[in-house]
């Protein structure tokens, strides 16, 4: 019983933390463009260590 007394607040606190994190990420616009985020992985950034070697890049227009 005594263990429950501090485990429950901890569980609730962690849950609230998760809720807070979600609300923050929502406000920060992280869910605005889910499809785009999935596609951007395919792009090679200019500052990457080995850019323009991927076959995706051979089409420039």
């Amino acid at each position: 019983m005594s263990s429950v007394l501090f485990l429950i607040p901890i569980a609730l606190f962690l849950g609230l933390l998760g809720l807070g994190a979600f609300l923050w990420s929502l406000r920060a616009g992280q869910y605005d463009d889910l499809e785009g985020a999935a596609r951007r992985i395919l792009n090679d950034d200019d500052d990457g260590p080995e850019n323009d070697k991927s076959p995706q890049n051979n089409k420039s227009d």
Binding site: A11, L12, G15, G18, L19, F22, L26
Partner: peptide, 17 residues
């Protein structure tokens, strides 16, 4: 939309706990 999503998050948190 953001009100709906926030309400969804809150109710999800409450339901799980």
């Amino acid at each position: 939309l953001s009100h709906l999503v926030r309400a969804l998050a809150v109710s999800g948190f409450a339901a799980a706990n």
